[in-house]
Design a protein around this nucleic acid. Structure first.
Length: 282
DNA sequence: GTCTATGTTTGCGG
DNA sequence: TCCGCAAACATAGA
């Protein structure tokens, strides 16, 4: 569930909460497989006594830097949440890792489906080295995007979901960006015109920026839905145009939104605004 | 109660 | 290179 805007929202809240400078007093791992690197016991031992130096995001990963130089990387996968709570609050069933801080607070990793993973490493590149563009950074230009797209005879949506091509997009924001750019998810990447590439480039940045401004997308009411570090829900779901809106009116032309499967993923389009025609490249 | 879908990623086989 | 499928799990919703 957490894509770039949701992860960014969490990182911003961790910074605002004043966790930088806090020391970890203890680490309890309740489900060992959540720790990918190293083993859970070593993980807990090495983090105990460490002081938090900063928080960052790369793609859908949260990076926590420590004063001694190590990095803790976290991927939330489907249902992961990183939440700040007082140490006195009871540990919930799905809280898989609890970091006790030296100021009476705890940082808890909550994950109903247990897909999320922690990596404690010296060099973050070992984990995030293969990620593609950071779409909101200056490096993601129309020119570089064009050069990347022409190299792939793949359907647009699976390519945009490929984190080694572009980092941070997931099912929600890809559907939203393709709608905004009026492109069919099955258009071949190397078939786009200059105009279409510009529109897609702009759409990707726009939907992500809007998602961040809205503090993320929280669908439904289940416990696995997105919540920020302070347990707040986002409100970007109110701004979605096509995602999970099957049968509802397209906000642009009123046509009923359709659901289809592309690259084994549930996909939502306006059949009138996003027609499949693999035009000849200009 | 039963069945299906799920916002992610990885690895396998064709 | 690219695609489809399965798996890692637990829950929501029908």
């Amino acid at each position: 569930m957490p894509e770039l805007p949701e992860v960014q929202t969490i990182v911003m809240e961790l910074r605002e909460a004043g966790l930088i400078g806090c020391k970890i007093r203890s680490v309890k791992v309740q489900w060992d497989k959540i720790v990918a690197v190293p083993d859970a016991a070593t993980f807990a031992q090495e983090l105990t006594g460490q002081t938090i130096a900063g928080f960052a995001r790369r793609g859908k990963y949260i990076l926590i830097q420590f004063e001694a130089g190590k990095y803790l990387l976290l991927h939330l996968r489907m249902t992961g949440q990183l939440i700040i709570k007082k140490a006195t609050e009871p540990v919930l069933k799905h809280e898989r890792v609890v970091f006790e801080l030296d100021d009476g607070r705890t940082l808890r990793y909550h994950d109903t489906r247990k897909f999320g993973r922690f990596y404690l490493v010296n060099d973050p590149q070992a984990v995030i080295g293969k990620l593609g563009w950071e779409p909101l950074e200056a490096e993601f230009t129309v020119q570089s995007f064009t050069a990347g797209l022409v190299q792939h005879a793949r359907q647009l949506k699976p390519l945009l979901l490929d984190q080694t091509f572009i980092a941070g997009l997931g099912n929600i924001y890809v559907d939203e960006a393709l709608f905004a750019a009026r492109l069919h998810p099955q258009r071949l990447a190397n078939s786009l015109t200059k105009t279409e590439i510009s529109a897609l480039h702009q759409a990707i940045r726009q939907v992500l920026q809007k998602g961040i401004a809205n503090r993320g997308t929280s669908l439904g009411n289940g416990e696995g839905n997105f919540a920020s570090a302070s347990r707040r829900r986002g409100r970007n779901q109110e701004s979605l145009t096509v995602f999970r809106r099957t049968g509802q009116a397209c906000p642009r032309c009123g046509t009923a939104i359709q659901r289809l499967i592309v690259g084994q993923r549930s996909t939502h389009i306006c059949p009138k605004c996003q027609q499949l025609k693999n035009k000849h490249k200009v």
